[in-house]
Design a binder for these strands. Structure first.
Lengths: 210, 210, 210, 210
DNA sequence: AGATAACCGAGACGGTACGTCTCGTCTTTAG
DNA sequence: CTAAAGACGAGACGTACCGTCTCGGTTATCT
């Protein structure tokens, strides 16, 4: 026993086959556990804020073993990141097409700002920011998330012939506003701000068209 | 903070009594302890970042009892805040005057961005933001600090006849970029970014001059 | 242990029914897996002691699925017990016959004590004892094992006309010494001790012959 | 500040003094916590046996922080050891003097066996043995304890002119029975067993009197 | 030959306990 | 009455195993 391992390669001898060792062994990942963890994380952030977000609390709330979280996510940060990425992808149109740069920017920024202001989303962003400022693993997660969001906006701008370097700066300014207001909370993010910002960006972009 | 002492010694000078009965009882606050705590905090932030900033670590580094910290500051945040107050005043120029809007913006943003990027300042900003996202009272403090900074830039823009509403938005975009990069750390703040941003703002402003 | 299979066919004999339902279907037990588990257990006990003996470690060492162990043994206890039973049967002469009580006792105890002191056996005994003190299922296993050993010595004594009650006590004293030294480790078990003990028992026995 | 540390040795320079560094600073050990831990340990052993004895359970039962246990005891074993040492003083019979060897042995063994069988003592012995089989440092403690017990019985035997070597063996047989039954739990230790064992030892001893 | 059934290895699952770390508070002694 | 030292209850951390529950795949026996 114990010797006829890695089955499925008995035919190796016959040919120069690829030696596919075995597609999978063991129980599969439980999708219910995954979504229970994400739901519990969202609930804790909504109700108790960043301070209440511990692995213990998530596991307790999701009725999941702690090890199950550690098995699939390298850190608390990764869980929040996955939560944020899913929501952003669903809520913001990646490629609006209104015919004009200004129109596309308004559509994109309206969706982005209004989503960021949603009471179920804002705490997630706040937590990402707060933890990223303290813990490296969160910083990495946030870096990935924000890079991904900027890439979408940059693509939009480049479709309208804005040079890459300028597009990157404009994207940083647009998203910078989201995070600035998220941190300070001195004013609400909404349609009016989105439109005004879109106009600023469109103006700055038009001067640099290729 | 930490400056409104237990009082009770104002009458020392006035008492012309012979047998100065007792000018004070008990040991006075040790100023060396206070600055040792602040120095240790700065050092830890510089060397290990916000993650390594625990009360235990500060006490150890400052060679001070933990209780001494709790006695004078209500939280870690308060220590960092005091540190920030001492440093911030020195660093940022109020009102450059080069003659042109673009020139003034470049001067102001260069100073602002380069200060924010300084290795002894950046970790302080990071900690301030992090704490503001967790605790309302620090959010208020940060709100006041950022409002004050925006007011300076707004005044600069209004000197060049930019309407107030637009000036406020442009100020948010300029400072938003600082915080965006501070949070994500995906790129360095510096002179190049300052100039490019100044150009974007100047362009957007010129369209709306009164 | 591990030998009383799932049963459920005891009624076959009684039922004079035509369709004897089915004695067995499916793959048979893999003997190689069984001995791999026992070998791995012995190796772990030898090399890492009782502390390192976990089901995970056995499975890893034996290159066997954990479920395979749980399928055939109800607990760690059962595995070690099976190992002990196999070794003990081989090592200890059941019924020496030298003609005299003292001679038989000396032969029996020499074999018993020297076996218990063997470096591949002692850790097993230590584990049996240690686990029996912590877990009830282990205690049951040890109780069966020690009862069986006492029965052999009791039979020897009764062959020499020692009354059963006294034989039982003498057996307990003889084996008690093994465990006492195994626990405390204050002295080695060997031939000298065996002979001295045999003399004590023989003396005590001769006073009570039937 | 913070530099005049380890006070109390300012006078070192003046002489070759012993350099007593400082007697003590800080909060003292809480005696209530210590006894709460020992009481909780005793209770858990009584009610749930060695298996239920975890650091978590002790801390919970004693309403004490886990760290408090780790601060004062290096292991579970050490807690049980301290508990045993406290109880041992009360339970140990000293030196009976009935005039005859058999009488003295009966008195000594009755007390010993009955004490070992007490429901509040037996679990302690079981745990002591179990830990000794796993951890060397604890094995040393148990070795000392058992050696001391044997010394008492040996002294009793030698008072009756039993040669030292034989006395040592008889003591091991007598105490071996205690541990044998403690481990296996196959029969109760009590007066009957004590008397029968006393008779066996007395018989074996009388053959070797000096 | 095909169906059925038990075995096998791998490994995910909900849990419990581990020993460590830090928190904010409390207590003691020195100055 | 403050400072330092340090014990205290609390609770989160990440790891190791527990015993159970799937998985895909491999023998064996029965029809």
């Amino acid at each position: 026993m114990a010797d006829q391992r890695k089955a499925g390669r008995a035919d190796d001898a016959g040919g120069a086959r690829k030696a596919v060792p075995r597609p999978h062994t063991g129980r599969r990942r439980n999708e219910a556990a995954r979504s229970a963890v994400l739901d519990a994380t969202a609930k804790l952030l909504r109700e108790r804020g960043p301070e209440g977000l511990t692995i213990d609390a998530i596991a307790r709330e999701a009725r999941v073993g702690r090890q199950t979280i550690y098995r699939w996510w390298p850190s608390r940060a990764a869980v929040v990141n996955e939560l944020a990425s899913e929501n952003a992808r669903l809520a913001v149109p990646s490629e609006p097409d209104t015919g004009s740069l200004q129109g596309d920017l308004r559509a994109f920024l309206r969706a982005s700002y209004e989503t960021a202001a949603r009471p179920d989303i804002a705490p997630i962003l706040r937590t990402l920011a707060s933890e990223a400022l303290r813990h490296d693993d969160f910083a990495v997660a946030l870096r990935e998330f924000t890079a991904q969001r900027r890439a979408v906006l940059r693509a939009l701008l480049e479709r309208h012939r804005v040079p890459p370097v300028r597009a990157e700066l404009l994207a940083e300014l647009a998203f910078g506003l989201i995070w600035y207001r998220t941190i300070t909370g001195h004013a609400k993010l909404g349609r009016t701000t989105a439109d005004a910002t879109a106009d600023v960006l469109a103006t700055a972009a038009s001067r640099t068209r290729r």
